[in-house]
Design a protein around this nucleic acid. Structure first.
Lengths: 230, 230
DNA sequence: TAACCTACCAAACACTTGTTAGGGAACCCG
DNA sequence: CGGGTTCCCTAACAAGTGTTTGGTAGGTTA
């Protein structure tokens, strides 16, 4: 594995820089197609349990043919996860740069997260299951970095919220952060695009539970009681 | 894999029943020790990514020696998960049979869950990551069944709660169920026994967020405002 | 037509995987 | 002492793994 002889330079190109680019140039559209099916299989079976033969099978070709488009199985997850995280942070940065208040920030982040789950369900599922032990490899260091940005963004919003009195003062901030983070992302394990609820609808419900709890508030109690008496 | 010849019957026992019991009898304590380290590795690396050589290494022995105690890698996860689920349901059944009201039931289930996480952190982590694709195999059908009991228990408590007015009437019950279930069990991914918070303490915080939300309620707002003005 | 490029196949290679077979050291029991 | 049991090691096997190599059908270009 470490000393895999770099080949495919048989046409005798410039021998100076050992660029990763192969001499052939697969079409980016086909790459995306294959990555999409690969992501689906990874998400369903788990990364390690998925054989490249299975991916090829799902794509209607043989195992070796995948290596015309990608240079390793690892590169596939890498590309799946990194493109997902790039799009995710594009959305997040927009929210974080909008100068919203803490509560609006939290709401916007949650909503944006569910939109990303809607768009990248498979990638999110992979991220959840595999990021922990993938991030130990230097190649996937960006996973750890992303997690750090994630934490700072959420913790910041929560802290400001507590300071401004829009969030409860008796919250354990770090616990609340993990609570929010987890509740949002685990949805990828059961969410199916095109189902009964739109991402925005699910976000609304989640926010309602997280912000106000599942027990009735004063006003709601009064209103419900009135309704029940009629 | 399908036609692995059943051996180890060379001593010529009664040839009638093909019992799984081997002729040798490893000590149950040693089994538990090995299962504990195996669970730790499974939880950290994932089941498929974990080699039996790695487990043996962690246990200070060689790969083949594990097969004196267990007859397959699959048997190890099986035993880890089933003993965990047995203990879990012992606790759950006690709660469910206590005749509590819906809210007390939910509180007791959550608290019990965190106690189980405290005791079986590794097993819970494995259950989360692997149960989905393990449950497709007939050997692990009990995982699916357990999930069904799980769902009925939670949904029942939630429905009764809504009917009695102790939970909000506008809840999407199934969404709330998944919300509760996930928020509780994902804690196993970051929880470390012996940390700052006891299981009961974490359960209290979680319940506080789930039941009352993270925004201040009327009374709290008033009290906090008073405190801040002093 | 000839040269070339894209996208795949067929077949293998090197390695890792779970698992097995036989043996042997330490210990208990008679 | 001698037989038996417990627990592990050494050494291998067969299947499966990711990956590479060379080839080739079909389309495009000149």
């Amino acid at each position: 594995m470490p000393n895999s002889t770099r080949n495919r330079a048989s046409t005798g190109n410039s021998a100076k820089n050992s660029e990763k680019k192969t001499t052939v140039t697969p079409s980016p559209e086909r790459r995306r197609e294959l990555l999409s099916t690969a992501a689906e299989v990874f998400a369903a079976q788990g990364y390690n349990a998925t054989t490249v033969r299975r991916i090829a099978d799902e794509a209607g070709m043989l195992a070796g043919s995948l290596y015309y488009h990608f240079d390793s199985k690892e590169s596939m997850v890498d590309e799946i996860l990194s493109t997902f995280l790039n799009e995710l942070w594009a959305g997040y940065d927009e929210v974080l740069g909008a100068g919203l208040g803490p509560r609006d920030t939290v709401e916007a982040l949650v909503t944006e997260s569910f939109r990303e789950i809607d768009r990248h369900r498979a990638a999110v599922a992979i991220y959840q299951k595999e990021s922990k032990h993938l991030s130990t490899q230097p190649r996937f260091r960006y996973l750890t970095e992303s997690q750090g940005r994630f934490e700072r963004a959420w913790l910041g919003a929560l802290e400001r919220g507590v300071a401004e009195g829009v969030f409860r003062a008796d919250l354990d901030i770090r616990l609340a952060y993990r609570f929010l983070r987890d509740t949002v992302w685990v949805a990828a394990s059961w969410y199916r695009p095109g189902g009964r609820h739109s991402p925005e609808e699910i976000a609304r419900q989640y926010l309602s539970m997280v912000l106000d709890g599942i027990t009735p508030r004063e006003e709601q109690t009064r209103r419900d009681r009135t309704q029940r008496e009629t």
